[in-house]
Amino acid sequence: MPSTVRGIDHIGITVPDIEQATLFFERAFDARVLYHSVTPNSDNIDHDAQEHTLRLFPGTRIRAIRMLAMPHGPGVELFEMHGPEQGHPARASDFGLQHFAVYVDDFSKAISSFTAAGGEMFTEPKPLTFPDERGEGNAFCYGQTPWGSIVELISWPSPMPYEKKTALRRWKP
C-alpha cells in the first residue's frame, strides 16, 4: 500500500513579534508572505477553540498568524502568541523540536544575510563528520534567530556515503 505521506508541508514557529520575525525570514532566507490567517486586532479567531486545539496554556491569546513561503521546501507559519507562563525557546538538549535546517548553496552569503537580519551564528561552517554524511564540500553551521530559535545552515554538494547502502535519499531542494 503506498504511503499517504508526501513530506513536510510547513513548520510552525511561535515568535514574540510577528513583524520582526517576518522581516528576519525575508532578509535571512528570501521568504515571502503568502497570507495572513490572523491579523493583529482582528476578531476572526476563537481563542477558546485555539486553546483547546493547540493545547495552549490557559489564558494564552494568539495575536497574529502568518504563512511564509521559502524559495524551496516547506512553508513557515509564524504565530505571535502572548500568555501566562510563556517559556523561552527550547535548547537543543530539551525534548521536542530543537532546530530546523535550511539548505544553502553559498555559506558566506547565507551567513551574511542571516546576521544582517539579526541572527547570531554559533559556529563557522565545518565539514559534516558523521561517516554516512561525509563528502567534499558537505558542511554545516548553527545559529540563532533574534527570538532564540536554533537554525542549521547546511549544504551537501557531494554524494554521501550512505547512498551506496540504500536507494533511499534525503530530501534536497
Rank of each mutant, 00 (worst) to 15 (best):
V38Q: 01
T39N: 03
T39V: 15
P40M: 07
P40L: 06
P40K: 09
P40D: 10
P40N: 07
N41A: 11
N41L: 08
S42L: 02
S42P: 03
D43T: 15
N44M: 01
N44G: 02
N44T: 04
I45L: 13
I45P: 00
I45V: 15
I45H: 07
D46Y: 07
H47I: 12
H47Y: 09
H47K: 08
H47E: 11
D48W: 15
A49L: 11
A49K: 12
A49F: 08
Q50S: 07
Q50D: 07
Q50C: 06
Q50L: 11
E51W: 05
E51C: 06
H52Y: 10
H52V: 12
T53D: 14
T53I: 12
L54H: 03
L54Y: 05
R55S: 08
R55T: 04
R55Q: 06
L56G: 01
L56M: 08
L56A: 05
P58I: 07
G59R: 14
G59M: 13
G59W: 03
G59V: 07
T60P: 04
R61C: 14
I62K: 00
R63G: 05
R63M: 06
A64K: 00
A64N: 02
A64V: 00
I65A: 08
I65E: 07
I65Q: 11
R66Y: 03
R66S: 02
R66V: 03
R66C: 09
R66G: 01
M67W: 05
M67K: 06
M67E: 08
L68E: 08
L68I: 11
L68F: 07
L68Y: 12
A69W: 00
M70G: 03
M70V: 11
M70Y: 11
P71H: 09
H72V: 06
H72D: 11
H72W: 10
G73W: 04
G73R: 04
P74Y: 02
P74F: 01
P74D: 09
G75H: 05
V76R: 00
E77N: 04
E77D: 15
L78Y: 08
L78W: 05
L78M: 08
L78P: 07
L78R: 10
F79P: 05
F79W: 11
F79R: 00
E80F: 13
E80L: 10
M81P: 04
M81Q: 14
H82L: 13
H82E: 10
G83L: 13
G83F: 06
G83M: 14
G83S: 12
G83A: 08
P84Y: 09
E85Q: 08
E85D: 09
Q86M: 14
Q86F: 04
Q86H: 09
G87A: 15
G87W: 05
G87N: 11
P89H: 03
P89F: 01
P89Y: 04
P89W: 02
P89V: 02
P89N: 05
A90V: 02
A90K: 12
A90N: 10
R91L: 11
R91E: 12
A92L: 15
A92D: 06
A92W: 03
D94T: 04
F95E: 06
F95I: 05
G96F: 00
G96N: 04
L97G: 01
L97F: 01
L97P: 00
Q98I: 03
Q98N: 04
Q98C: 02
Q98T: 03
Q98F: 02
Q98K: 00
H99Q: 02
H99G: 01
